[in-house]
Design a protein around this nucleic acid. Structure first.
Lengths: 322, 322
DNA sequence: CTGAAAGCGCTTACAG
DNA sequence: CTGAAAGCGCTTACAG
């Protein structure tokens, strides 16, 4: 089922069929109708490979994620997908794992081979070698969440967001505030948030207390456990993610601690889980779906990206007043 | 950067370069080495579009999902992606929404145009028109979760699973058991689970009580609220999904009802959220990642599919004894 | 072991 | 308004 078949049936040449199907003009209304009708009858499907071959492009963008089970990946993917659907763009999905240079390289090769018109990477850290490879491939890339040197990024200002979150807790009367489940050695997100947290506390003379972790539920749970067994437990814990916040709330529930009366918990992300746990998480919201749309739009349309995306405190019930 | 360029530099013809790169044999060790070296130097990337055009296939499979934010989609996608990565298969992702025939058609057209070698659909219901289109396209498809007429399916036996879950509650001494947040008009999953639930109760003479809903957190919450305000509240609620179970637990917490002491909650899925809420959900586990791998393997390798996938009760703490 | 040629299905100047 | 021809980059019989 090719344009040749249609051409034969319609009594014209493939050139004409192509022109009609691409609406590039230069045909009579009569031929147009006949061609379209036959194409429909024959259930013609353009061979994109052939089309792409001559167009030297693909209308496909590569989406690179670490893995899909991360709670914030899903809304981003949804945001991207919706935009792509509306604009006739296809999405090639690839997982590159966490800090797996070999797999990341494989993903880049794959995307280069598929001649994607651009890459959208979600929270993917590039090592030097793969960064060089990326540059060398000459593919445009927009990064979501983390900074990739030399490429545009869509992200909130983590330092300010952590500052705002900490400030929020201070304003509500909390004094002993810990920051938990964060990776202070992570040169990007982790450090920035630690700084913001420390900056907010500095002015008050309160001592910062950071419990490192990997942003996970488990990390939150462990941090809460550790903090609660200390001589002087905190009044509030600022979690590095909603998953971690859920872990903290879980620990509190298991100990019969009332949230927020005995322990306030502030999350980060406003992901899926924030609504699911009891009490609902008050959290620093990142507009994931919107970030996904911004990123793909910038990538495809070459529109400029806003410097920073707006975050905000989404209030639920895990933080009260003290 | 094409095989022509490599050929020129290596002093051979494109045919030879192609043979070397595809390891199809028929070249001296010397040419092989030279070609490979030059290809590496030039950072050659095969144009997959051209290759696919002659091969008349693509090594791409289409993955069709309703939307990514559904809590069980992520582990399935992860399972598929890992398998695909190991086997050099690419994944074209498309969202077809929920019961959106127009969008589903667009997705099928897209996949046909991309000449995917097969389609993996995750919990996608096909209407008659799109089913006809699919047949007409001649693409192999494996469906996950729901039955698509005429195509292989990977799914648990919902009727039996619901029976087993209900039986589990009965064995633990619960008598007034409601089934909540389920769609009894859904010809597949919903009906099957209702039947299983009813069959288990039948033998005991207990009255079934089904609160319809759409499997969501909200549906669970509303069902719990409604049930709890009745004259004689249930002792246990069997939720149609873990999301719904989370909604039920949330309602219980908000009312100060102890789970499972005052209200037992049995979930369905063993998704991400089952571990997150307090208490952890006892739930009917579906092996999503494994289902994803089975499905893609069957699709690509044409291996036969097991008739049914094993489910099991995953015990946590939302069901006790009575 | 290697090359010349044809062809995959489409698009697009160029002629008329 | 339409056709004939060339070409996108690769693969693969066919010859030698």
């Amino acid at each position: 089922m090719t344009i040749k078949d249609i051409a034969k049936q319609a009594g014209v040449t493939p050139s004409t069929v192509s022109r009609v199907l691409n609406q590039s003009g230069g045909y009579s209304d009569k031929t147009r109708q006949k061609v379209l009708q036959i194409a429909a009858e024959l259930h013609y499907q353009k061979n994109e490979a052939a089309s792409n071959l001559v167009a030297q492009t693909s209308n496909v963008i590569g989406v690179l994620i670490t893995n899909a089970t991360t709670s914030f990946a899903a809304p981003i993917i949804d945001g991207i997908e919706d935009w792509a659907y509306q604009h006739g763009i296809r999405i090639l999905l690839a997982h590159c794992g966490l800090n797996d240079a070999a797999r990341l390289k494989a993903c880049l090769d794959l995307m280069a081979g598929q001649k994607v018109s651009g890459i959208l990477s979600i929270s993917v850290q590039f090592d030097a070698t793969n960064l060089a490879l990326l540059k060398q491939l000459g593919l445009p890339l927009v990064s979501l969440g983390v900074k990739v040197d030399g490429y545009p990024t869509v992200a909130i200002d983590d330092e300010k967001a952590a500052y705002t979150g900490t400030k929020y807790l201070l304003n509500r009367g909390y004094r002993r505030i810990a920051l938990a489940a964060i990776d202070p050695t992570d040169p990007q997100t982790g450090q920035a948030r630690c700084h913001g947290y420390q900056r907010a506390l500095q002015k008050t003379g309160l001592a910062p207390l950071i419990i490192p972790g990997d942003y996970s539920f488990q990390a939150g749970y462990q941090a809460a456990k550790q903090l609660w067994q200390a001589a002087l437990p905190p009044e509030a814990i600022f979690a590095a993610s909603d998953d971690a916040a859920a872990g903290i709330v879980f620990y509190a529930q298991s100990q019969g601690l009332a949230v927020p009366e005995q322990l306030a918990v502030l999350g980060f992300d406003n992901s899926y889980v924030a609504d699911l746990v009891y009490p609902g998480l008050t959290t620093v919201e990142q507009p994931f779906a919107q970030m996904g749309q911004l990123a793909i739009e910038a990538l495809v349309m070459k529109t400029p990206l806003p410097d920073q995306v707006a975050y905000q405190i989404k209030e639920r019930h895990s933080v009260g007043w003290r």
